[in-house]
């Protein structure tokens, strides 16, 4: 029996290690490839670089214009995720007395936004943003992202606010606080874990989103990282070291955040997936 148990544990670790390698080896190769010179790719395809070409990162920053697309990605994601989460919290607070028919209707209205496929709205959105004169600015991405982040935010935050004890806001009301003050100073602070889930969920897709900026970021200097890298590939598709250096730069922020807070990431993303 004891032997059987040991074998079982051994097999389990073997399986999990094998699966982990399937995940890690391809990622490790991209990091290695980002330090290779072009001849290196062909001379030793799966070995370490002969000479570590830090130059790839320098040229990615300058020639592949990663400095611009990285800045755009940061601005777009940070603005959209914070505005969207704040607005979602406001909506959820407004809808927290869900017994009112109008509130119930609005809740369903917002949450059903999850079903709208981006392929269907992207073309009308393109036309709309062109009419507004927003095409060619970062707002062409920020505004739709804010709207698209709302359904998940409302879905996660409304039930959380509904479970808060009513005494909490009543206490504020007795002290003479306005509804807005109650929201800002009483509701938002206790909502922090839920807000974190929403920020992670929406932040990850906004940072990684490719299709929307591919269509809507018309000018080269409004592109975000994924599109910037792709368009660079179109122009210089032999500069592999440089391309992989760009991929590493684009991916590192999310991966670092994930490693630091993996528990919150897994919890937040699963909550969104299971509910969505």
């Amino acid at each position: 029996m004891k032997l059987r148990r040991a074998v079982e544990v051994g097999v389990r670790h073997f399986v999990l290690c094998a699966a982990s390698l399937v995940v890690l080896v391809p990622i490790a190769y991209v990091v290695i490839a980002s330090f290779k010179t072009i001849p290196d790719f062909f001379a030793n395809p799966y070995g370490l670089p002969e000479e570590w070409a830090w130059q790839n990162y320098v040229s990615a920053w300058r020639d592949a214009r990663i400095s611009i697309t990285l800045t755009n990605s940061i601005i777009v994601t940070a603005t959209a995720v914070s505005v969207s989460t704040f607005l979602a919290a406001l909506i959820s607070y407004g809808l927290s007395r869900r017994e009112r028919p109008l509130a119930m209707f609005l809740y369903t209205f917002f949450v059903s936004g999850l079903l709208i496929p981006v392929q269907m709205i992207i073309l009308p959105l393109f036309v709309l943003l062109r009419q507004f004169g927003l095409l060619g600015t970062l707002f062409a991405l920020i505004c739709p992202y804010i709207a698209m982040g709302l359904p998940l935010g409302v879905l996660i935050l409304t039930p959380l606010i509904a479970t808060l004890p009513r005494d909490l806001s009543d206490a504020g009301r007795i002290d003479g606080a306005s509804e807005l003050q109650i929201f800002l100073h009483i509701i938002l602070p206790v909502l922090r874990p839920g807000l974190a889930s929403v920020v992670i969920l929406n932040g990850v897709w906004m940072w990684n989103e490719f299709f929307i900026p591919l269509v809507l970021a018309l000018k080269a200097d409004t592109q975000t990282l994924p599109v910037g890298i792709m368009s660079f590939v179109g122009t210089y598709n032999t500069e592999w070291g440089l391309i992989f250096a760009s991929v590493v730069i684009a991916t590192a922020p999310v991966v670092i955040a994930y490693i630091l807070m993996s528990r919150q990431f897994v919890a937040g993303l699963t909550a969104g997936a299971v509910k969505g």
Partner: peptide, 10 residues
């Protein structure tokens, strides 16, 4: 959590 673009390049 990796973008599909990064995954594609990997």
């Amino acid at each position: 959590i990796l973008s599909l673009v990064a995954t594609g390049f990997i």
